[in-house]
Simulated scan of single mutants.
Amino acid sequence: MVLALKDVWDAFIMLFIVLDSIGNIPIFYSLTSGMKASERNKVFLKSVLVASALLVFFTLFGYPFFAYYNVSVADFKIAGGIILFIIGIEGIFGKIEAEMLRSEDLAIVPMATPLLAGPGSIYMVMYLNNTFGLVPTLLSILLNTIAGYIILANSSILLGKAGKNTVLVVSRIFSLFLAVLAVSFIRSGIEEALRSMGA
C-alpha cells in the first residue's frame, strides 16, 4: 500500500512538472484576458479536460502503436528525454511566447495542446505507465487534472498576490527541473540501448 501510494505520488509530481500549470498561468491568462471570469474558467476547464483525455489516450494506446513499429523503451527514453530537454531549455530562457498564438478555440489550441498535452507530457504518461503501471499513471492524470484546473481557475488571485514576475521565476525553476529530469531519461535510455547490444 505504501509502495503504491509512493508510485502515485512520484507519477503525479513528474507529470506535474512537465504540465507546468503554474508556469502556464501568465500565458493562459493573457490568452483569455478579454473574457469574463466565468467564461475564462470554462475555457480553463475545457482545456484541462481535453488535455487529460489526450493523455489518457496515449497512456492506453501509445506504446502498442509504437511497438508495432519496433520502437523500444530505450528509444522512447532517449527521444522523449531530448524533447523534454528542449522544452525545459525553452522554458528556462523564455522562448515560448504563447501571446503570439491565436486560435478559433483557445481551449483546445494552443491551451490543451501543445501547452498542456504536448510532446513532453505525452511521452511522460507513456513512460509513467511503463515504469509505475496503469493505475498510478491514470491517477496521476486525474490528480493533475484537478490540480491544473484549481491553479488556472485561481490564476487571477495568484497573479495578484505573487505577481507575474514571481510566477515566471517559479516557471523557470520547473523548467530547470524538467531539463535535469530529461538528462536522466537520456542517460537511462542510452544505458539500456547499450545493454541490449551487449555493450
Rank of each mutant, 00 (worst) to 15 (best):
L143Y: 06
N154D: 06
F93V: 11
Y127M: 14
M111E: 06
L128V: 07
S103M: 11
N154S: 11
A147D: 10
L138Y: 03
K161F: 07
P110E: 09
F132L: 09
G148D: 00
N165V: 05
L159T: 08
M126R: 00
L152C: 09
M100F: 12
T137Q: 00
K95A: 11
D105M: 11
L115F: 12
P114E: 03
L152S: 05
I122L: 15
A98M: 13
N154I: 04
S155V: 09
L101V: 13
T166K: 04
L158N: 05
M124V: 07
I146F: 10
I146A: 15
I122K: 00
L115M: 15
L142E: 01
L101D: 14
F132W: 07
R102H: 14
P110Y: 08
G118A: 07
I92T: 06
I96Y: 03
N165G: 05
D105Y: 11
G160F: 05
T166I: 09
T113N: 02
P110T: 10
S156Q: 14
T137G: 03
S140P: 01
G133S: 06
L134F: 06
M126A: 03
Y149G: 02
L142G: 06
S140V: 05
L134R: 09
S156N: 15
E97R: 13
D105A: 12
S121K: 03
L134T: 10
N165D: 13
M111N: 00
A107R: 09
P110D: 08
G120Q: 03
E99Q: 13
G160A: 08
I146N: 10
I157T: 14
S121I: 00
A162N: 02
E104N: 15
P119R: 04
N144Q: 09
V135E: 11
I151N: 01
A153S: 11
S156Y: 13
I150N: 14
I146L: 15
M111A: 01
L115W: 05
Y127I: 10
G133N: 06
I122S: 05
E97F: 11
V109I: 15
N144F: 04
K164E: 15
G163T: 00
L158A: 09
N129F: 06
G163A: 03
N130T: 12
I122M: 13
Y123P: 01
N144S: 10
P119L: 01
I122D: 04
K95N: 13
K164Q: 15
I122H: 03
I150G: 13
P136M: 02
E104F: 14
